[in-house]
Every structure is written in C-alpha cells, then in structure tokens.
C-alpha cells in the first residue's frame, strides 16, 4: 500500500510538473495583460503535434523537437500577438475571451483536419528506472528535467534581467512602470511570446508521456486554468506547485476512483478554489 501511495505521488509529481510548465505560460499572460487565452490548450497541442509529426514522419528524436519547439513558440506567439492579442489588451473580458475562443475553435478544427481525430502517442523510450519500489519511466524523468531547467531559466530571467523585472513591474503597477521608461507594448509582446513558448514546450513534453488528440485541448486548457487559480494569478512559482498539486490529485483520482473521473475532479477543484480561495494557495491578493 505504501509503495502504491508513493508511486501515485511520483506519477502526480512527474505529470503535474508538465501541467505546471503549461500553466506558467498562461499565468504570465493572464497576470500581465489580463487576457485569458482560451486557446491555451491548442497552443499546447501545437507542440505535441510538432513532436509527433517529426517523430512519426521523419523519425526525428523528441529531444530535437523539444529544442525546436522553442523557436516555433517564438514565431507562433509573435504572430498571434501581433495579429490578434495586441488589438484587445485592456478591453473587457467578454471581448478577450470571445476572441481567444474563436482562435481556439479555428486552431482545434485545423488540427482535426490536418492530424485527424485519432489518438496519438509517441512510443519513444519504454525504459524505466527503478528506485526502490518506484517505477519511473525514463521519458517522464527527461520531461521532468526539462521542466526544472525551463522553470529555473524563467525564474532567473524574471529576477535578474531588465526585461524580466520589467514584466514583474508591469504586473504590479503598469503606470509606474511606464513612467520609468518601460516600453509597455514590447513587454506585453515579450510576455505573450514567453507564454507561448512554455505552452508549446509543455505540449512537446505531453506528447511523450500522455496520449493526446485534438479533443485533448479542452481538458489540457482546463488543467492549466485550475493550476493558475490554485497557484495564484501571475505567480510563476505558484503555478509550478499548483501543477504538481493538480497532477497528484488527478493521479490519486485515477488510481483510487477511476481514470474517467480525473477531469471532473480537476473541475471540482477549480470551482472549489474559485469559491473558497480565489487568490490561490499562495496568494494574498484578489485581482
């Protein structure tokens, strides 16, 4: 029993860290420009399909795709921001939500047409590492390592560089930041691009550890939303811890109740948090 419990926690941790990475992108964009990207699930799938397409079609190792998903995220994020998001920053939630809802429908059905509704899964490495009673699949460990690496990189970027501090400043007081010479438009673009990179990379990681299909966009997006709410809006560290929490809850539900109820449990968690602790586990302010 104890071994099983440990295994469930380990699974939750490894998958949850990927959720955390996906949510990092969402929380950054949401926190800084008050734009909730309902197409975030599709953004994640962009990375998943890149990885799958390169692997299945050309035999290219997912490790290469992980690296390639970064420039793809830059390009994709830049394009979406310049064409769409830029136009609605500061508009009411109704406008931004409907716009990104439209984008999500467009992208999702494009994926359905291009990649078909079939469930995909990359069978890349079947090896597992045994640690005591724990079975840790090597793909999940690699994904976990990449999550840690990227999270650390984002942390350093936000803490140690001028543009990174600019992002945090803009989140805390946009007018004061502008008065100090922060180029607001550029910071917004930068945040959206970073958010997109994280979504796309998270998707590439998803593709090696979980089965996915175009219809996965919605549950993935909901998981990311829950993680943002649990971790507190605009808090990168909170998103990572929230991701691990959500991953663990999902893992427990899947093991001890039924895999079928995992999405519903996540939804309940979301509603519970919105009602009881809207600022998240670690937050103190309500926005």
């Amino acid at each position: 029993m104890f071994a099983l419990l440990l295994q469930v926690i380990a699974n939750g941790l490894l998958i949850g860290s990927i959720y955390g990475l996906a949510a990092l992108g969402l929380t950054l964009v949401w926190g800084i420009m008050d734009v909730v990207n309902l197409a975030h699930g599709e953004f994640i799938l962009v990375g998943a399909y890149l990885c799958y397409w390169l692997f299945a079609g050309w035999g290219i190792s997912p490790l290469v795709s992980f690296a390639l998903s970064i420039p793809l995220g830059v390009l994709f994020g830049w394009l979406v921001h310049v064409v769409l998001i830029r136009q609605v920053v500061g508009k009411p939630a109704l406008t931004t939500l409907l716009l990104t809802f439209g984008l999500s429908i467009l992208l999702n059905n494009l994926m359905l047409n291009i990649f078909t509704p079939d469930v995909r899964m990359i069978r890349w490495s079947q090896q597992s590492i045994l640690v005591g009673p724990l079975v840790l699949p090597s793909t999940r460990l690699i994904a976990f390592g990449i999550v840690l690496l990227l999270t650390a990189a984002l942390y350093l970027f936000l803490e140690r560089t001028y543009p990174g501090r600019g992002i945090r400043a803009l989140m805390q007081d946009a007018e004061a930041a502008a008065a100090l010479g922060v180029n607001t438009a550029r910071i917004l673009l930068l945040s959206f691009v970073i958010g997109t990179i994280f979504a796309v990379v998270a998707g590439a990681l998803v593709s090696v550890v979980l089965p996915f299909e175009p219809a996965s966009a919605l549950p993935l997006a909901i998981v990311a939303f829950v993680v943002v709410v649990v971790g507190g809006l605009g808090r990168p560290l909170g998103a990572m811890l929230g991701g691990i929490l959500v991953g663990t809850v999902e893992s427990f539900t899947g093991t001890f109740i039924s895999q079928a109820y995992a999405p519903a449990t996540v939804s309940f968690l979301l509603i519970l948090f919105l009602l009881v602790r809207p600022a998240g586990l670690f937050g103190t302010t309500v926005r």
Binding site: I222, F225, A264, L270, I271, P278
Partner: peptide, 19 residues
C-alpha cells in the same frame, strides 16, 4: 465569480456534469 473566472467555472461545471 466574475469575468474570466466565471467563464472558466461554467466551462468546468459543464465538463463535470458531462463526466
């Protein structure tokens, strides 16, 4: 719950009921 949070909460209610 207001704004985007409401939108996402209703989304989740539907997902939960569907499940």
């Amino acid at each position: 719950i207001r704004g985007a949070y409401f939108a996402i909460a209703t989304f989740s209610v539907n997902l939960a009921v569907q499940t």
